[in-house]
Structures are given as C-alpha cells and as structure tokens.
C-alpha cells in the first residue's frame, strides 16, 4: 500500500522527486563540509532561499496561466528605492511602504491589462516593462547607491533580522498554497491556463483572473525587494533583476509547474527554491568556482526540464524523443513491479 502511494506520487508530481534531490544535495554538502551544517550557514542559506522562494511563488501564478512575468525582478529592484523617494517626499516609512506596494501592484496591473486587452504576449509586455523599470531606477537614482529608508523595528521585520526573510517566504508559500489550491480563484487560475475557451464558456472572467495574477506577481516582487533591501542594507540601482526572476521561474519549473500552463504547484516552487539555494550555498562552501557553478546549475535546470517534459509526454501517451524511450522504460518497470498487487486487489 505504501509502495503504491510512493509510486503514484512519483508519477503524479515532481514535488517529491525534487524534494529528494534537495535532501540528497544537503546530505552531500553536509558530509563534504561541516561548515554547511553550521548554524551560521543556516542564515546564509536562508538569505539565498527566501527571495527565490517568493519570486518562485509569484511566478507560479502567471506560469500556470501559460503566461510569464519577466519584470518581477525589476520591480524587486525598484521597490526599496520607491520607499526612499516617498520618505524624501515627506511620507512616513510605514505609509511609504504601503504606497510602494500599491505601486508595485499597479505595475502588475498594467502588465496584465496590456497582455489581456491589447493582446500582446506577456513575454513581450513584461520585457518592455523590464527595460522601462530599469530606466526609471537609473534615472531617478542617477545610478548612485543609497541606503534603504527607515531602521529599527520596521527594517527588522522587513528583512533586517537574520531570519525574517525566510519566515516571510515560508508564510507566503503557505498563503500561496492556500490561495492556489483551496480557493475558487486558485482553481480558476488552473482552469484558465488549462483551457481558456472552456473557462470563458463556463462564465469565468478570464481577463480578470489573468490581471489579478500579474498583480499578485508584481506585488510579491516588490515585497521581496523590500526584504532584500533591508537585509543587504544598501540599494544598488545596477542590480540585474533578470537573474532573480530566472531563478524564480527555474524554482517553479523544477518544482513541477508547466511553462505551457494548466499545471502549477506552490509547494513545488518552494522546494525548488530550497534546492537552488542549497546548490548555490553548497558550491560556495565547498569552494567550487563561480564559473563551474553556473555550468552545473544550467545543466541541472536543463535536466529537470527534460525530465518534466518527457515524463509528461510519455504519461499522456504521446511518445517523446530519445529520452522518451528511457522515460517509458522507467514507467514500464514501475508498472511491472506493481502488477501483482493490482491483480491481487481486482
């Protein structure tokens, strides 16, 4: 019975596979270097994982629709600057933070409206937003690094304290899961991503669902920008937001969210983020050079994607390429192992 559960889980979702890979990596790094399992590394690991996790969660909302938001990383760069500007304009830090988050949500709203109502593919819409926001950050800051607005409690709550980012990330992952799996809105995201025509015919307001997803994505991007601003303690207008965005997309996809839409998992994105964080942190600790790290990360993401796509093809009986024959073999051997049980029960 337990064996059957394991197998069906392995076949149905990638969460477990990626979780096992994460555990294996953690054990590997832990055995390789005692520094990995030290308390001080836990805070380093948290700082790697938290932003990827939040951006990953943010991207699941739009990826499940079959859309993508490339600009979430630029919103991340922009948001802490906005708090500073608003403070300079005379607003309190708390009020400034709230207004900033509203502005971030508005950016998402614009992305969504352009994509939905003007029919521009989200890849292009949000690519435009990327450059526009980069320009805004550089123009407004004159390219000069500044300090984030405010200190003390608010800064500590919003990322200043060592573990505050990861706690926020975990809370957002839980919230994301609840919204995605337990609410009507979440169900409609999957429905729209899976079959937009059918969703429209059933009366779901497809456009509204999409716009809200872009809003949530940008809002979360802005929020993680604040967290990192207070954690790092200085704001660099030259930060490349695309890197974080791609980490987020990678976390989501490695975790089992389909780039083609209709299939998303918040838990998968959270686990995917942990795996990417463990990889980055682990490579740093064992002293592998940064170039090799990029190579290994690239191959890992590619491998996960191939597995994702091919298993899906084989499962739906549509064949698959060279790797497909391997995936078929894996599936067949699992089925063969299960056969006696099935005969016994039926």
């Amino acid at each position: 019975m337990r064996g059957k559960f394991w197998q069906s889980r392995l076949l149905q979702g990638q969460e477990l596979v990626i979780a096992l890979i994460g555990v294996a990596l953690a054990i590997f790094f832990g055995v390789y270097s005692s520094a990995f399992s030290s308390v001080s590394n836990l805070s380093t690991l948290s700082s790697y994982v938290a932003p990827i996790m939040i951006v990953g969660i943010a991207e699941v909302f739009v990826l499940t629709l079959g859309e993508i938001d490339l600009s979430v990383g630029e919103v991340y760069v922009l948001s802490p600057f906005l708090v500073v500007y608003l403070k300079d304009a005379g607003l309190g830090v708390v009020a400034g933070t709230i207004v900033t988050l509203l502005i971030c949500a508005a950016i998402g709203c614009i992305n969504g409206l352009i994509t939905v109502h003007l029919g521009v593919p989200s890849f292009i819409t949000t690519l435009g937003t990327v450059f526009a926001l980069q320009g805004i950050v550089l123009l407004s800051s004159n390219g000069i690094q500044i300090n984030p607005a405010g200190a003390g409690t608010i800064a500590n709550v919003l990322g200043g304290w060592t573990y505050s980012s990861i706690l926020w990330a975990l809370a957002i992952a839980v919230l994301g899961y609840v919204i995605f799996r337990r609410t009507t809105f979440g169900l409609h995201i999957t429905a729209v991503g899976g079959n937009q025509t059918a969703s429209g015919e059933s009366g779901i307001k497809v456009g509204a669902v999409k716009v809200w997803c872009f809003v949530l994505c940008s809002l979360l991007g802005g929020f993680v920008g604040l967290l990192d601003g207070y954690r790092i303690g200085s704001l660099n207008p030259g930060t490349d937001g695309l890197v974080l965005m791609f980490y987020g997309v990678a976390a989501a996809v490695i975790g089992g969210t389909a780039l083609t839409g209709g299939r998303g998992t918040m838990i998968g994105a959270a686990i995917g983020a942990i795996v990417l964080g463990v990889l980055e942190d682990g490579f740093n600790i064992i002293g592998i050079n940064a170039f090799a790290y990029q190579l290994v990360l690239g191959l890992a993401i590619l491998g996960a994607m191939v597995l994702n796509v091919q298993l899906e093809l084989v499962r739906s009986g549509k064949g698959g390429g060279v790797y497909g024959s391997f995936a078929r073999l894996v599936l067949r051997s699992r089925r063969a192992g299960r056969r006696p049980q099935e005969q016994g029960s039926s």
């Binding site: 337990r182 609410t183 009507t184 809105f185 979440g186 169900l187 409609h188 999957t190 429905a191 991503g193 899976g194 079959n195 025509t197 059918a198 969703s199 015919e201 059933s202 009366g203 779901i204 209709g262 299939r263």
Partner: peptide, 30 residues
C-alpha cells in the same frame, strides 16, 4: 464542440467549474 472541459482538473472540479461550492463567505474557499 470543444467540450469545455479543463483536462488538468478533476471530474468533480469540472462538474462545478465556476459554480463551486464554497465556505468562508467572501473568501470563497473550495
């Protein structure tokens, strides 16, 4: 003609699509 079903969703989620039974009032929990 195109069936208006969402392949990825379960039979019961399809049966109730956009007419879901909910709890929690305006929060609309499934």
């Amino acid at each position: 003609q195109d069936l208006a079903l969402v392949d990825q969703l379960s039979v019961y989620h399809n049966l109730f699509l956009n007419r879901e039974m909910t709890t929690g009032g305006r929060l609309r929990f499934l």
